[in-house]
């Protein structure tokens, strides 16, 4: 077995262990679930009005967007946050001290975060299919669309998580990223069709993957008639592939560079210094 194969298989082992740790930890699951659960419940209660130009309920229209938004939060923020904390407690340095350790660490972390994102996605999706009228189409192709949109979305946002997790040195400053994502959510047509926004804000929303992930999931889960509320009155699947693909390519080019730069700076004393900082912060 070559060094790389051993590292990748160790990475799969790591992913399994971490996923088990996440799904058996009630506190962590609640941490991932409370935002989308509140969002879905609120939309269920107040979402009786109709999507403009249709007689489709706004609540049902928002479900795929909430799922997409949440995939961004769990995938991107989850990975970023774990990179930051793993640097703080020396997990990353341990990886660096192990032959092939960085490869297995990243394989493990990315796969386990992707898996937990899918788990949370399914945990929100299944009750939503029951609660909301018109969500979910029973054709094989729509499920296929759901799967490729989610996978492509993860490919687009997870490298960004790795980059942000490398650039920010502590969990507090990552809170800033959360704010930015919230801001993006508000211009990405998650809760209300993006066509209601002024034109320049539509362009801002379309520049980022949150919008496209939401749009792709709406195309998979909502009746085609609802597309009239979208830009160009279309699901624009080709554009979705191009936009998410471009983000994925950009991320996959930049992430290894940023990760390598970050990892090369890690040593015992940097970990110790960071710990000192954490200890000095008021609890």
């Amino acid at each position: 077995m070559s060094g790389n194969n051993a590292a990748i298989s160790a990475g799969l082992f790591r992913a399994r262990v971490e996923l088990r740790q996440s799904v058996t930890n009630v506190g962590e699951l609640i941490g991932w679930l409370w935002i989308p659960v509140i969002a879905v419940v609120v939309m269920y209660i107040v979402g009786d009005s109709k999507v403009p130009g249709t007689d489709f309920s706004l609540g049902s229209q928002s479900v795929p967007g909430i799922l997409g938004m949440n995939a961004v939060f769990t995938g991107l923020m989850g990975l970023a946050l774990s990179l930051v904390t793993d640097r703080e407690d020396g997990t990353l340095l341990r990886a660096k001290a192990t032959p092939g350790g960085m490869v297995s660490y990243l394989v493990g972390r990315i796969l386990s975060k992707a898996a937990i994102t899918v788990v949370v996605f399914v945990l929100i999706l299944v009750p939503s299919l029951v609660l909301f009228d018109g969500v979910g189409k029973s054709t094989a192709s729509s499920w296929l669309t759901l799967i490729w949109v989610l996978l492509l979305g993860l490919l687009a946002v997870m490298p960004l998580g790795a980059i942000l997790g490398s650039l920010f040195s502590n969990a507090q400053s990552l809170g800033f990223v959360t704010l930015i994502i919230m801001g993006l959510v508000s211009v990405s047509g998650i809760f209300y069709p993006i066509t209601a926004l002024p034109g320049w804000l539509q362009w801002v929303g379309q520049a980022f993957p949150v919008y496209w992930l939401g749009l792709g999931l709406r195309s998979a889960l909502l009746p085609d008639a609802v597309a009239v509320a979208e830009i160009d009155q279309s699901w624009r699947q080709l554009e979705t592939v191009l936009a998410l693909g471009a983000w994925a390519v950009l991320g996959f080019v930049l992430a290894p560079i940023v990760l390598r730069r970050m990892a090369s700076r890690e040593s015992g004393s940097t970990v110790a210094a960071r710990r000192e900082q954490v200890a000095q912060r008021p609890a």
């Binding site: 077995m1 020396g90 341990r94 192990t98 297995s104």
Partner: peptide, 23 residues
């Protein structure tokens, strides 16, 4: 070190040991 606090002792050693077999 404070790393891998959620792991079990043996599990962590098994994981790390895997990296060395090729060498």
């Amino acid at each position: 070190w404070r790393d891998h606090s959620r792991w079990r002792t043996r599990e962590l050693l098994v994981y790390l040991a895997r990296h060395y077999a090729p060498f």
